[in-house]
Each structure stands twice: as structure tokens, then as C-alpha cells.
């Protein structure tokens, strides 16, 4: 085994220290939130100190959350929006990306530019609202899935990946009697698991965290997604005053925040590899 030089070891040590510091910076807010959620409210509201180790532990905040029907309903809504939005978004993004690879089709470049255009200019809140209203999607969970089903960025990523695949694969499938749809489903998609996982994860994270659409298009309290409810809880600052807002306590606010990030927190480490892998696949040969 080759002995490392002193400078090399120092560099490694510095690198480890730097990464530890970086990790601490990332982790401290999370630990802080977890600690606050586990403390009784009268301790959690104490200012002037960083809450990293609970002075006293109680699970009352979590009990309150799981007893609250509204939060559990919103959890279900978010799961539906995330699952439906991610699956449909990935499917249609893949279809569009594949279609855009066929540069021999007349007008395909114009379509590509149109897609690029949406990355720079959006319709804005009011046109989007009018569109959703006229589509009859107001107060429907589909309002959070359909209008923003595909992201132009992801379409381009997908197109770049498909372009990196040897065209001979599709050609041989066509010679063997497949039509375009069969070629896409039976040949192309199975070869694209990495990019599909990446895009799926992009969409899933985006959908889970999406908030503004929920505020704009959902009017029924029972249909609001988790992020909207979380925000409502977090801004409940003034305990029972004339505005009528009710304080739920700092510990409950933090417990809700923690419960909200938990699903992504659990899934992310296992799918993280697809992020780098998929993006590299799409980018290097784009």
C-alpha cells in the first residue's frame, strides 16, 4: 500500500473538516426543528438559545398532529398529488422528449423553441388562474397536477438522453415490426431507467413541496395539500387575539414541519444516486 505524503494527508484532513462543517451547517436546522418539536411549548418558545438537545421530551406535539384530521387529510392529498403528478409528468415528459428527438419531422425545431420559450417567460398568475378556472379544475386536486404536468427543463434533459441512445436500436425494432409506440415502450423506456428515476424524483420533490398552486386553486379546506396546511400552521403567530388566529404552539409548528419533510427525507438517500447518474447521462452527450 502506497504511503500518502504529508501534504496529501493534510489536504484530506482539511477536506474532511470542511465536509464535516458543511454537514453540520446542513444538519443543524433540522436538529433544531426536531428538538423544538420534542420539547414542551413553554420550553420551545424560549428565545436566546439554540435548541439542539431537548431539555424535556414530550411527544404531545406529534400526538396533536396525528389526532388532527385536517393534517392527515392534507397528507393524503399531498401523496395523491405527488404520485399522480410524478408518474404522469414522467410519462409525458418521456413521450415528449422522445418525440423531439425525431428531428426529421417538419416543424420539430419550432416546437423545441416553443418549449424553450416557456423556460424564460411564463403566463403569470392571472392567465394561469383564468385557464384553470375555464378548464373547470378549480378546487380539484387535478389543478395541482395537470397545468404544470411537464417541466421544459426536464423535457430537454430527457431529449438529450434519448439522443444519446444509438438510433440503430429503434431502427432495428422498426425493422422487426414494432410501431413507434411499441419501440418507445419496449425498447427505449427500459434503457432509460436512470433518467426516468431522475425525472421522477425531480417531479416528486417538486410536487411534494408545491405550495402556491394549492393556495390559488384549492378553496376547500379538505383538499388543501400538506404544504399549504404547514404554511398556515407556521404563520399562526398571534394566539387567540381579535384576528381570531389560534396559536398551536412552537412545538406543534415544528413537529408539522418535521412530519412534512420526513417522506422526502426517507426516500432521498436511496434515490440520490439517480440524480447524479441521470443528470450526467443526459448532460454529457447532449
Amino acid at each position: 500500500m502506497q504511503r500518502k505524503s504529508l501534504s496529501n494527508r493534510l489536504f484530506q484532513f482539511g477536506l474532511i473538516c470542511y465536509m464535516l462543517l458543511l454537514s453540520a451547517i446542513m444538519l443543524l436546522p433540522l436538529v433544531n426543528v426536531l428538538c423544538l418539536s420534542l420539547e414542551p411549548n413553554y420550553i420551545a418558545i424560549e428565545p436566546g438559545r439554540l435548541h439542539l438537545i431537548p431539555q424535556k421530551i414530550t411527544l404531545k406535539a406529534y400526538e396533536d398532529i396525528f389526532r388532527n384530521g385536517q393534517i392527515m387529510r392534507s397528507f393524503g392529498n399531498s401523496i395523491f398529488i405527488t404520485v399522480a403528478g410524478s408518474l404522469l409528468g414522467t410519462l409525458f415528459t418521456a413521450m415528449m422528449g422522445y418525440g423531439l428527438c425525431h428531428t426529421h419531422i417538419k416543424g420539430i425545431h419550432f416546437v423545441s423553441y416553443m418549449i424553450l420559450f416557456t423556460m424564460m417567460f411564463s403566463g403569470g398568475i392571472i392567465p394561469s388562474y383564468i385557464l384553470v378556472k375555464n378548464l373547470g379544475l378549480m378546487n380539484s386536486l387535478w389543478a395541482m397536477v395537470l397545468p404544470s404536468m411537464m417541466s421544459a427543463y426536464n423535457v430537454i434533459l430527457m431529449r438529450s438522453f434519448f439522443r444519446s441512445l444509438p438510433p440503430e436500436l429503434a431502427e432495428s425494432a422498426l425493422i422487426d415490426g414494432c410501431n413507434e409506440m411499441q419501440t418507445f415502450v419496449l425498447i427505449i423506456l427500459p434503457l432509460s431507467k436512470a433518467i426516468l428515476a431522475t425525472i421522477l424524483l425531480f417531479y416528486a420533490v417538486g410536487r411534494w413541496n408545491s405550495f402556491f398552486d394549492g393556495v390559488m386553486y384549492i378553496t376547500d379546506q379538505a383538499k388543501k395539500p400538506m404544504q399549504v396546511i404547514l404554511r398556515e400552521i407556521l404563520i399562526m403567530s398571534d394566539n387567540v387575539d381579535t384576528s381570531g388566529d389560534l396559536d398551536v404552539g412552537m412545538n406543534v409548528k415544528m413537529a408539522t414541519a418535521f412530519v412534512t419533510v420526513l417522506p422526502i427525507l426517507c426516500v432521498y438517500p436511496f434515490l440520490q444516486k439517480y440524480f447524479t447518474k441521470g443528470v450526467m447521462l443526459g448532460a454529457v452527450k447532449g
Binding site: I71, Q221, I229, E232, S243, G244, D245, L246
Partner: peptide, 9 residues
């Protein structure tokens, strides 16, 4: 304008 329905009454 309000949030009382979430945890409120």
C-alpha cells in the same frame, strides 16, 4: 383571510 380552520374551531 385567516387560518382558524386548520387547528382552530
Amino acid at each position: 383571510r385567516g387560518t382558524a380552520d386548520t387547528f382552530g374551531v
